[in-house]
Structure formats: structure tokens, C-alpha cells
């Protein structure tokens, strides 16, 4: 589903955020991307959705090389990839249901379908009673669930989750992981970036370890 060949990425000259990354993520798999802060986890995920550009190397997503993708094709790539951002990136002036509806509005679904799907996905993350609230009226864990709902509302082929359990207590973390597991069993390929040791120990998913921009373990 995702393949990387000799991928380099540098924000500044001669300071590689990622170095010679070679990675193959199978369709339907669940992969944990780990490493200390600044290792390049977020950067790696950003390459997959063209939020950042690789300075060298080839990246294939769903068989398609996205390194030289046309600017106008990027939106269609992103529609197939749900993203849970490290900083949520919810629209604070919009209600929860509006936030979750946004990806559907973008692809031009009918109002009826949007309402139906958004409500279903919010019910799935256990927030159906909060649809009219605003993000800042919710707890951190609830906001995280809204972010996951928004990423999944489209039934994307890939889900990229950047620290979805960061700053959450054990109970909330487990709930989030359960949501992701369910999405995975429905066929969504998941990449989850985390530096949470517990996650790695408690779940027996494939772990890709990053350090200083390099892959140090891949199992």
C-alpha cells in the first residue's frame, strides 16, 4: 500500500530529517512508527500525504508514485487517506458534526448522506451526544475522538494517526486503540506514530523504529 525507496527529506540544507528510508507497508496492515521526539515520525507521515516533499527517493502510495505528483492531483490522494493530526487540527469555530462533515462536503456528497455518515461515525466514537458542541468545549480525549471520526468518515484506504494517544490516560488510550483496531479489521491500512512505550508493549503490531531520521528497527 505504501512503499518508500531511498527516501531523504531535509527541511534545511545538510540537516536530514529523514535519511535513506526504505519501507513497505502491506495493504490492511497496522504499523506502529516509533522513536524519540524529533526522530522524524511526523515528517514521514507528512510525505505520504504530500504535506512535505521528499528531497530524494521514490514513494508509492497505492501503486502510484507520488514524488512527482501534479499539484492538482494532491487533493485526490488526500481523500483516500485519513489523517489524525498530532495537534488535531479541528475547526474551533465549527460544531463537532460540522467538523466531521467537512471531508464529505469536500467530495460533494449530498446533505442527507453527509448527515447520515457523520452521525454514524460520531456514534462509533461515542460522541453522538456532543454533535452540537464546539471542539474547545470537549476534553482532550474527546477532541482526539472527533479527529479520528473525521479521518474515518470517508472510509479511507489508509489512516495516518500521529500520536493519537499522546497526553491521554490509559483508559482513553485503550478506547482510541480499539477504534483504530476496528477500522483496521474493516480493511483500512493504518500507520500510527507514537513514542508511547506502553502501546508498543501492549499491542502486538509491527513496529518500525526511527531515530535521528533513520530506520533502526523494522519488524
Amino acid at each position: 500500500m505504501i512503499e518508500m525507496y531511498h527516501v531523504y527529506m531535509a527541511y534545511q540544507r545538510d540537516a536530514n530529517a529523514l535519511e535513506d528510508i526504505n519501507l513497505k507497508i502491506e495493504k490492511g496492515s497496522f504499523v506502529l512508527l516509533t522513536g524519540p521526539s524529533g526522530a522524524g515520525k511526523s515528517t514521514l507521515l507528512k510525505l505520504i500525504t504530500c504535506q512535505e516533499k521528499a528531497t530524494k527517493g521514490q514513494i508509492l502510495v497505492g501503486g502510484r508514485n507520488i514524488v512527482r505528483i501534479r499539484h492538482s492531483s494532491i487533493p485526490y490522494l488526500r481523500r483516500n487517506t485519513g489523517i489524525v493530526f498530532q495537534d488535531f487540527k479541528l475547526l474551533n469555530k465549527r460544531t463537532i458534526i460540522d467538523n466531521v462533515s467537512l471531508p464529505l462536503e469536500i467530495i460533494g456528497k449530498s446533505r442527507k448522506e453527509i448527515k447520515h455518515k457523520a452521525w454514524n461515525v460520531l456514534k462509533m466514537v461515542g460522541l453522538q451526544h456532543k454533535i452540537a458542541s464546539y471542539p474547545l468545549q470537549l476534553s482532550g480525549g474527546e477532541q482526539q475522538r472527533v479527529a479520528i471520526a473525521r479521518a474515518l468518515v470517508n472510509d479511507p484506504a489508509i489512516l495516518l494517526a500521529d500520536e493519537p494517544t499522546g497526553n491521554l490516560d490509559k483508559e482513553n488510550s485503550e478506547y482510541i486503540m480499539e477504534l483504530l483496531r476496528r477500522a483496521n479489521t474493516k480493511g483500512t491500512t493504518i500507520m500510527l506514530a507514537t513514542h508511547d512505550k506502553n502501546l508498543i508493549e501492549n499491542y502486538h503490531y509491527r513496529v518500525v523504529g526511527l531515530e535521528k531520521g533513520k530506520i533502526i528497527s523494522n519488524g
Binding site: 500525504t49 487533493p75 489523517i83 493530526f85 487540527k89 475547526l91 467537512l102 469536500i106 473525521r150
Partner: peptide
Amino acid sequence: ITRLLGATDRF
């Protein structure tokens, strides 16, 4: 954010 969720320029 809208852009990151897959919105086109036109949208």
C-alpha cells in the same frame, strides 16, 4: 485544514 482533508483549489 480543508486543504489537508483533500479540498481542491476550486472548492
